[in-house]
Every structure is written in C-alpha cells, then in structure tokens.
Design a binder for these strands. Structure first.
Lengths: 143, 143
DNA sequence: CTAATTCCTATTATAATCGCAGGAAAATAG
DNA sequence: CTATTTTCCTGCGATTATAATAGGAATTAG
C-alpha cells in the first residue's frame, strides 16, 4: 500500500521548485543538491511531471524547469496519479479497466469505491501551496 | 498503491465465512471452491488472520475456521492491516517506525498524516457486516 | 488406526521498484 | 561556428515484493 519513492520525491521536488519559482528556471542540479536526491534519479521523476503537464522544461544554457501553474492550483492528487500511474486501491477501479466477471455480485466493490473516493477527495483537496506552509522554515534542523 | 491480492482475498474469504457461519467450522476446501482461489494460497492468507485474532482454526476431522467475533464487529481496517502489514502510505507512519532526520522540517509529513487518517477513518468505519449487504444476492450472475 | 484438517517451513517464478549510465538534442553565450 | 550547459531519451542491473505452490508435521474425531 506504500506510495513509491517516485511519488514521495515528486512532492518534495515540486515544493522545492515552488519555493524557488521567483528565480526563473530551476535546474535539476540545484534541486538535487537541496533535496539530497541523485540528479539522475530526479530526471526520471521530473520527466513524468513534464508529460503530466505539471512542470515544463527548457533546454540549454540558462534552462531548467518551472511550474506550469501557481502552487495553489497544483493538486497533490494530480501529482501522485502522474507519478504512480494511478491512485486506485484495486485494479478494477483503475482508469480504463474493464469490469471483471464478478462485478455484479461482488461484495467488496462498494467498499473499494468508497476508499478510492476518500483518497481522491483528500488528495485533490490538498495543494503544493498547502505544503509550503507546513513543517518549519526549512532551516530548523533538529541537530 | 494497489492493495495486494492477499488483502483483497482476505475480505472475500471473511465475507464468505460470515455468510456460512451458522454451519459451524468452515473448511478451506469449501471456501476455496466457492471463491475460486487455490486452497494452498488461501492457507497462507488465513494463517495471518488467525495470528491477527480475526478467525480461529480447529484442526482435525470436523475442524475448520470460524470468525472470532460477529461480522459487525470486524473492521475492514483491522483485516487489511493484518494482511498488508500496514495501511500507512509512507514508511514514516508505519507502526514502530523511527522518525527520520527530516521530520522537523518536512513539508510533506502533514499531508501524509492526513491521508493516513482519512484511510484509517474510512476503513475502520466499514465492517464485514456492511459488505454482506452489498452486491446482489450472490446468485445473480450477469451471464 | 485412519481420514480429515489445520499448521509450518520452504521454494520458485514473475514482476515492480530503485537507481544509475551514456549519450543525443537543443539552446545560449561568446 | 564552437563550447558549454541543460533537458531529453533509452536502456540496464540490482534488489525487493508479490503470488502461488509443495511437502510434510501436528492434531482431532470416529
């Protein structure tokens, strides 16, 4: 049931980019340095976010990435669906799945639909902007 | 993010057992036949449910399994935590995990806590008895 | 004793995740 | 035009998790 590192890192990356969006295009090197994630692994995650229309990339000198929309319009649900493929708890409820033979007499389907709905409601009600106001000022290390 | 077959089958198994609880001990052979799951695989799932105190087994001739509590007292959350190990969406929130070094300045932790809470609230508010009243009478095949 | 049944310990095959490497393509600066 | 920087693309290797099966020990009823 765990969310993969891809999804978890994606959130951190986007909050990081949101916090530095005034600086124009942000390079992966910067984000990698700040977030302690390898540049190469970041690449594979950010590529999904580009495909999903959440960030856009600009190649060449002076290039980098930037958010396509302001942070308060980026839903966490969209990010996770983008990097995880889907947030549905069971295959029956994934986008574009065909109903299985048991559907009509399935005792568990209603439960799964409700869980899917609960997850969707929560994740779509939370934005990157909400995350920016959470968890200290970024410099208050414990140690 | 998908729930594994272990968790999904566990729900079907328990609904099945609840529907036949008046018959006393229920053998895996019966459940396997009705649910179209191999007896051997069922075994590994039911073993977890025994450990988790959800069903109890009786060996020998005339033995089998039965629910430890009435269906309306068996929360789906308990079943899934039992078979999946945990329902937490991130490792930080798993039972008995040590807080990571980023905790104090983590921008995403609050979000994950909320998601965990939403999942917990929904799954703990749903019981096997609720499932028994869902999805037709068990004989209304589509075909 | 015999048959039925749960319990226990392994093992295998398959798939998914995680992370890295190498280089092509594009944009800019000089 | 050349050199540099940066995203883009393809693919690989290691590790881990899932799914399912196999074989037999322990227990109970008759």
């Amino acid at each position: 049931m765990l969310i993969s590192t891809k999804g978890r890192y994606a959130l951190r990356i986007l909050v990081d980019m949101a916090e530095h969006q005034s600086e124009g295009y942000i390079t992966l090197q910067e984000v990698a340095g700040r977030q302690d994630i390898s540049e190469k692994y970041l690449e594979s995650i950010v590529r999904e976010l580009v495909k999903g229309g959440i960030v856009s990339g600009q190649r060449g000198k002076g290039g980098g990435y930037r958010l396509c929309r302001p942070p308060e319009k980026i839903k966490v649900g969209d990010i996770l669906r983008c990097t995880e493929g889907s947030l549905a708890p069971v295959a029956c409820l994934m986008e574009g799945s065909v109903p299985c033979a048991r559907t009509a007499r399935c005792r568990t389907l209603e439960f799964w639909k409700g869980l899917d709905e609960a997850i969707r409601r929560y994740t779509d009600g939370y934005t990157i902007a909400d995350m920016m106001q959470s968890g200290g000022d970024g410099d208050d290390y414990i140690i």
